[in-house]
Each structure stands twice: as structure tokens, then as C-alpha cells.
Amino acid sequence: MKKEENIVVGVSIGDLNGIGAEIVLKTFEDPRILEFCTPVIFASVKTMNFVKNHLKMQVNLNGINNLNQILPQKINVFNVWNEHVKIEFGKEDFKIGEYAIKSLEAATNALKNNSIDVLVTAPINKHNIQSETFKFPGHTDYLEQELQGNSLMLMVANSLRVGLLTDHVPVKDVAKHITPKRIKEKIETIYHSLQKDFKIRKPKIAVLGINPHTGDNGVIGTEDDKVLRPTLESIKKTGKLVFGPYAADSFFGSDNYLNFDAIIASYHDQGLIPFKTLSFGQGVNYTAGLDKIRTSPDHGTAFEIAGKNLADNSSFKEAVFKAIEIYKNRLEFLEISKNPLKFNQKKI
């Protein structure tokens, strides 16, 4: 198993006019974190030095032009570009969006080639990244195309884990996207992720309803009774501990969420509003279901405070530690799978 300090954490820099570069530098300026991993920031030394100097931060950067030059105990910056980049904090800029995608593509290629072990993505602006060559609503959809597996957005804060049946889908289209096939795929994804990424052998999963009060027996919509409930019943017959659908309005307020290893919400805000309320800025966005590990903070570019040295890096730091933890859990899961008898003997 790799030593912690040798786990190489790749970082895509996100929108340079936002708080991404600030929270990245604030995280790695603490030398203690370099005892847990070796960071590689995909941007340029010129750009990162500009941000560092603007924020008056005391941090040393190790510029590299080849991923074979990565040094432990250093904050490595892989030069994806060499030209000067005009940064205007707080401004939406399509040119800056292009650099965000350059960073993401370079980091993803490094992940695919095993030059880095995990990927942590700083926030992007979903509008200014759109182009003729990049037409994805966010990181998750792009990474699902580039990496193997079926992705699922899983928000994590300690023992609270909230996954989504649909993520960046307009509310008016949510119900038509929730099909028996999608429900089965997403539950399968989260079930196996809980086992290999979070070391939970027999996960308990709750599913939230689509309509208010799960439809009230058809009075407020029939999707819960006709689609969600029968699909969950068929999944239960396979031996999985899956429960629901639960009425979403009272599920978190009643502390019922504490009885489960993960909760699957039907749509974005149904899951993320209670998650972000309960996680107090410590949440992590994890893309479950892929053959590689990617995490990110649970917030956006925060243009309104960009460049003012006001950004809280807590969520980004948690994303780094969560990526390392999941990487180690996957190695252990692989070892157990290869030799379960040996593992069981150790536990006796």
C-alpha cells in the first residue's frame, strides 16, 4: 500500500476569477498537509504566483513541465500554459473559462494515465466553460465521459451521505428522468461505493420521494406509487437494505437520516439544501461510481468575495482528505477481495 505522503493529489484550478486558486493555496500553505499527500496543481507558476502575491501569501511553488518531475513535500505546479493570464477577480470571463477547461482536461488525462492518484477540482463557472468543444453542465458529466463507470453525485460530511437520482436537471423535467432503470443504476452505484469507498459492508439506504408527501396516494402525483415504490420493492428482493420512499419535508428535521448510511434524493435541491444546512461548510462533493477518485468542495466560485482573502478553505481541505481516505479504502477493499480469508483471520 502506498504511503500517505506518496499519494499524489491532482488539482484542477477552476475559475481563476473566483476563489478557487485562493482556497487551493490556503490549503497547501500549511506544511503539515504535505505529510499526507503530494499536491500537483494544474495551471501555471506565473498564474499561481500572481494569486499568491495578490493575497500576500507566504508559500513556495515548485514549477514543473513534466509529471515525472513531481517532488514530495513540495507544492508542485504543472505548467498547462505559459502565457500571461489576465485575472479580474469577481468577473465572469469566457477566456478564463477556457483556462478552467484546459486545467481540467490536463488533470483528467494525468488521472487516466496514473500520473496522479486522485483528483480534487476547484469550483468552475458552469456558464463560461461552455464552448463548441465543451458542452457539459459541470465536472460530473465530463468525468463520466472520460472515465469508466456510472457516476453519481454523492455529498459527504462525516457520516452524512446524500446522493442524487437526478442532478443538474430542470425541476420541470425531474419526474420524466426518474425511470426504473435509472433508480436501479443509481442505487447499485451508491451501494457498491459505500462498500469499497466507505468500508460499509451492508449499507442501509433511504430514498426520498419525488412528490410532496410521496404523492399522498396519487392526490399530488402518481410517480411515487407507479415508478419509485415498485422499483424499490424489486430491489429489496435482491437482498439490499433499501427503504422508502420517504416524504422529504420531514425526513431530515426528524433526524431520520441518522438511521441510514446514505440517502438518495430525487432531485438536486431536495438533497443539497438539507445537506449544506447540516454540513456547516464542511461538505465534500464526491463523484461515486467511477474507476478513479474525484472530490470537490461543496460550494461555487463565490465571485462576490474573490480576490479579497476572505474565502474559507475548509470544504476544499476536507475534499483533499476525503480523496486520500477513499483512495486508501479502495486499496484495502482490493486487498480484501483478493484474499478474504487472510483478512478474516486478521480480524479474529
Rank of each mutant, 00 (worst) to 15 (best):
M1H: 13
M1L: 12
K2V: 14
K3E: 10
N6P: 07
N6D: 15
I7E: 08
I7L: 09
I7A: 05
I7S: 06
L16G: 01
N17C: 02
I19P: 00
G20M: 09
V24F: 05
K26S: 11
K26N: 15
V40E: 10
I41K: 02
F42W: 06
A43G: 04
K46Q: 10
K46M: 08
K52N: 08
K52Q: 09
Q58L: 11
Q58V: 11
N62W: 03
I64P: 01
N65A: 05
N65D: 13
N66F: 07
L67S: 08
I75K: 01
N76D: 04
N79P: 00
N82S: 07
N82P: 04
H84W: 07
V85Q: 01
E88S: 12
F89W: 06
E92T: 15
E98L: 12
Y99S: 06
K102D: 08
S103I: 12
L104E: 03
N109M: 11
N109S: 14
S115N: 14
V120K: 00
A122R: 01
P123Q: 08
H127F: 14
H127D: 05
N128S: 02
S131E: 12
P137R: 02
G138L: 07
G138T: 13
D141S: 14
E144K: 01
E144P: 00
L147E: 03
S151M: 12
L152C: 13
N158S: 10
L165I: 11
L165S: 00
D167V: 15
V169S: 08
P170E: 11
T179Q: 06
T179L: 14
K181D: 07
K184Y: 07
E185N: 08
E188Q: 02
S193E: 08
F198I: 03
K199Y: 15
I200R: 06
A206N: 04
L208A: 02
G209V: 13
P212N: 12
T214N: 07
T214K: 03
T231D: 05
S234C: 05
K237Q: 14
V242Q: 01
F243S: 08
A248F: 05
A248C: 01
S250T: 14
N256E: 10
Y257W: 11
I264L: 10
S266G: 13
H268F: 15
L272K: 02
P274S: 07
K276I: 11
T277A: 04
L278D: 08
L278A: 11
F280M: 08
Q282V: 02
N285C: 03
Y286V: 14
D291G: 02
D291Q: 09
D291C: 04
K292Y: 09
G300Y: 10
L310W: 08
E318K: 14
V320C: 05
K322N: 09
A323K: 00
A323M: 00
A323E: 01
I324G: 04
E325M: 06
Y327W: 11
Y327M: 09
Y327I: 14
K328I: 15
N339C: 06
Q345V: 15
